[in-house]
Design a protein around this nucleic acid. Structure first.
Lengths: 146, 146
DNA sequence: TAAGATTAGTTTCATATGAAACTACAAGCA
DNA sequence: TGCTTGTAGTTTCATATGAAACTAATCTTA
């Protein structure tokens, strides 16, 4: 029989990252999905608009900062604007650009979901000791620029 | 102005995992997608069938070992069987169950893609020092049971 | 052993996704 | 100014996905 050197999927880093990432994301997403009928894309848009509050980001800037596809952002924004969670104006000097801001409704969602998310992250990290957390941080930074 | 405690998305562990995982998976997937018209799901099925060679896994077992949806596996198998990359028989004692084996074609793909995948992983891990690799290993195990 | 409960696998249906085409506007330049 | 090129954002289209319904076979138990 030939030597096929099978890949051990469950030890393979990209695979493990994929499984872990899906589980972790799903765990939080389920929560806000149910409570607010909010997709992950929409939540990320809200998070970024909250973070850069007052700057009136454009859709393109939101896409950059969320690392999401501009189509995905466009669709998420369409829903968020319809639900009056985000206010969309047009940029003064450039009529192509939109100017995006969270509405009171949007802020309310943010202020509910953000603590949930942080708490979930805290619980995850609590499984690690101080040194592991520091190293994880470093490792993620080193691996990031794929 | 109220204190909204915005979430720093780019420091948020679930988000970072998601971005990293997508990039890493995409990087390898692009390669076998182009060369073999093989989806990630299909590749995972092949990897598992190679790994448990000779055991004649059923579709359900493949789904378990890849942690994928049974629908996804069913569809991946349909394509793989059509392309004659996988041979599907029926289980002797249980006519519901399928018995799945890689064909010569399937093995050929495996034997090309597996080294590519391993090399990619190696290159990724080469960015880390020995201690970081050990810790990453441990951390992934600790975080896994979400 | 016949009826109901389970299991393996597929199909359907509704939604998610991304690439490419498109629309509207802006900028560069002859 | 008019023409070309570039950019912001949306729409279209083809494919991917997952939940739930479905089919066929097996198991359970009265």
């Amino acid at each position: 029989m030939t030597d096929h050197e099978p890949l051990e999927l469950e030890r393979f880093l990209p695979y493990r990252l994929s499984i872990l990432s899906n589980r972790v994301s799903q765990a939080i997403a389920r929560e806000y999905q149910e409570r607010f009928d909010l997709s992950m894309t929409e939540w990320r848009v809200i998070a970024v608009l909250a973070r850069f509050d007052g700057e009136g980001l454009s859709a393109r800037e939101v896409a950059e900062r969320t690392e999401m596809d501009k189509v995905a952002v466009s669709r998420a924004l369409a829903r968020l604007v319809t639900a009056k969670r985000v206010v969309r104006r047009t940029h003064d000097g450039d009529k192509r650009r939109s100017v995006l801001l969270l509405s009171a409704k949007g802020w309310k969602i943010h202020d509910t979901v953000a603590p949930l998310a942080r708490e979930y992250e805290r619980a995850l990290l609590a499984r690690l000791d101080e040194e592991e957390r520091r190293t994880l941080e470093r490792v993620l930074d080193k691996l990031a620029p794929v």
